[in-house]
Design a binder for these strands. Structure first.
Length: 396
DNA sequence: CGACCTTCAAC
RNA sequence: GUUGUUGAAGGUCG
């Protein structure tokens, strides 16, 4: 029953190499500037001096001041009128957060539950679903599909810092996290303090989310439930509806403790027999395919590329192939049963391409023939062309 | 292994 | 204008 050994000096690990690695990581994303309008490129102009100053501020207690976040609203779903509030930290602060993230991640990663799959290295949606399907194959077919209401925006700051403090005793680091959380936002020129939530757009936010929800994971484990969690979206696998009800009760209780609540619309008891949506797929005992929303998103994208008024050329085919490759790559997995859907979509894509505008070279040119030749020569591919390559790859 | 470019997906 | 973490694929150059 010895006391858990905490990590004491993380601050001491902040050196020039870590600073540089963190900057490189921020640069790789090619993200936009924050409130101070300093772009990554501008920060890089005096890189050594900027990193040195930042390192000093991070290492000496109560020196670092997080700049307010820049507020940007992005549409949540393609045509919906709901918006997601982004908080974009200044480039300097993104580097700072990356430094802290790199220090914290190795500490918390081993403590996380094996069934937590979101935002974690070497884990993915596919792995999450594979685990879920394993559970179903072992017999349990009723699911509690739960979603936390406004998760990132509603986690209490104290809860986050306390959760980190359970493993980290370095007061300076805890202070820095507190400052990131309480940086505030500038919304059309007016400063608004942030008293709750972790910024959507913050470098450490995903890690902090996992640190907090790790508590939920182990509570479920302790109660004997099997589940798969991806960020704030999780499925508890149950043997029947009675057990699912009980699971819902436990989850609700834990949510209250964490100052959170479930989204009533997105939380439901379903079954593997009837099927349910999770991480972009529609999962059921008879098929695992794209969910309707994802199919619509894909179609919208194809429509944009193959607009009737646009001229069919090499660029269009290239762009189409990129999108098709990417989509097939995600949805054609070991477990998915997408062949029929892909056939349908491929026919639809070819129809779209056929009806595109195509320049006539001379007045009585057989442009249909030239168009088809162009299509073949430039190699327009279909979703199915990519599934075959993924199939042969997965079997190796 | 690294730099850059493009795409897809989840949240 | 659009941030962030993670995973995947393809390409160019070392």
């Amino acid at each position: 029953m010895g006391k858990k050994r905490k990590v004491h000096s993380l601050t001491g690990r902040i050196d020039d190499r870590l600073m540089m690695q963190s900057f490189k990581a921020v640069k790789r994303n090619r993200g936009a500037a924050g409130i101070d309008k300093v772009s990554v490129g501008m920060f890089e102009e005096n890189l050594d001096a900027n990193l040195a100053a930042l390192k000093r501020d991070l290492k000496t207690r109560d020196t670092f001041v997080a700049k307010p976040l820049r507020r940007v609203f992005i549409p949540k779903d393609a045509k919906g009128k709901s918006f997601r509030p982004l908080g974009i930290p200044a480039v300097r602060d993104r580097v700072a957060q990356e430094v802290i993230r790199r220090l914290l991640e190795p500490i918390f990663e081993p403590l996380f539950h094996d069934c937590s799959f979101g935002f974690r290295p070497k884990r993915s949606c596919h792995k999450a679903i594979e685990k879920l399907l394993e559970f179903h194959e072992e017999g349990d077919r009723v699911t509690l599909d739960a979603d936390i209401a406004g998760f990132f925006d509603n986690i209490p700051h104290k809860l986050i810092v306390d959760a980190v403090a359970e493993e980290v005793a370095d007061g300076n680091i805890l202070n820095l996290i507190w400052k990131f959380l309480a940086a505030g936002v500038m919304e059309n020129g007016v400063f608004k303090p942030t008293t709750i939530g972790t910024p959507q757009g913050g470098v450490i936010s995903p890690l902090l989310a996992n640190i907090v929800l790790n508590k939920l994971d182990w509570r479920l484990e302790q109660a004997g439930y099997r589940f798969v969690r991806y960020a704030d979206d999780f499925v508890v696998v149950c043997k029947d509806r009675v057990q699912a009800k009980a699971a819902l009760e436990l989850v609700t209780e834990v949510m209250t403790e964490l100052g959170l609540s479930l989204s009533p619309e997105k939380t439901k008891i379903a079954s593997y027999g009837k099927g349910y949506d999770f991480l972009g797929f529609r999962l059921s005992s008879k098929s695992r395919t794209m969910r309707t929303k994802s199919e619509e998103k894909f179609k919208t994208k194809i429509r944009e590329i193959t607009r009737r008024c646009h001229n069919l050329d090499a660029e269009v085919i290239k762009k189409l192939n990129q999108v098709i490759r990417g989509t097939a790559n995600f949805f054609a997995t070991k477990f998915s049963t997408c062949i029929k859907l892909f056939q349908k979509l491929d026919r639809w894509i070819r129809m779209r391409v056929r009806s595109m505008k195509f320049k006539r070279k001379w007045s009585n040119d057989n442009y249909r023939l030239r168009k088809r030749n162009l299509q073949n020569k430039l190699g327009l591919l279909g979703l199915l062309d990519f599934t075959q390559t993924t199939m042969s790859k997965t079997s190796r």
